[in-house]
């Protein structure tokens, strides 16, 4: 039996505290997309150094022998993986599975997951961050751009929800 979830207000307070802690200790916010992009750049640099070096965007990741994986956000994300793994064990929610609504096949759901991932990966770079690094941290910093980003996320999601409802409801 899975353990009952936290109350969302309690969960929000704990996430808020983790943001305060990164500022108190490191003077900066947390984030998730930066580490994933560093990982993507690293893989590409191994597979095809020429594409990476000729990319105006990624070449600076490796300038002067820099290692993009030696980054604050990468260590933070390693922590996220450990923390979520522990929570999954403690709450007995560790299972290989595909979550979806009742009206779509596993395969169909995975195609949506891939397409959604590509869009989010692109958009997170365009917006200079994601829901955590831009919307939550920027939102707490009272950044106008971050608030605009967050409202746009919900606008985009609500706009498309009806057309993909078969996947979820």
């Amino acid at each position: 039996m899975k353990k009952k979830l936290w109350d969302p207000v309690f969960g929000g307070v704990v996430i808020g505290i983790s943001i305060i802690l990164t500022f108190y200790v490191a003077g900066r916010g947390l984030g998730a997309s930066g580490a994933l992009t560093a990982f993507a750049a690293t893989i590409q640099n191994i597979l095809s150094p020429s594409i990476t070096q000729s990319s105006q965007y990624f070449s600076k990741y490796f300038a002067n022998g820099a290692n993009p994986l030696d980054d604050y956000l990468v260590y933070l994300i390693i922590g996220v993986m450990i923390g979520s793994f522990i929570a999954g064990m403690v709450s007995k929610d560790m299972k290989l599975e595909v979550l979806k609504g009742p009206n779509i096949s596993n395969k169909g759901r995975l195609w949506y997951a891939l397409a959604g991932g590509i869009l989010v990966g692109y958009a997170a770079r365009m917006a200079r961050g994601c829901t955590s690094g831009q919307a939550l941290v920027g939102g707490a910093e009272l950044s106008v751009g971050a608030w605009a980003f967050m409202f746009s996320i919900f606008a985009g999601g609500f706009a498309v929800a009806y057309f993909i409802r078969r996947q979820w409801i």
């Binding site: 958009a123 980003f149 985009g156 999601g157």
Partner: peptide
Amino acid sequence: GGLIFGVGMAM
């Protein structure tokens, strides 16, 4: 970016 992100997040 937010609009595209939202579409991707819903999908």
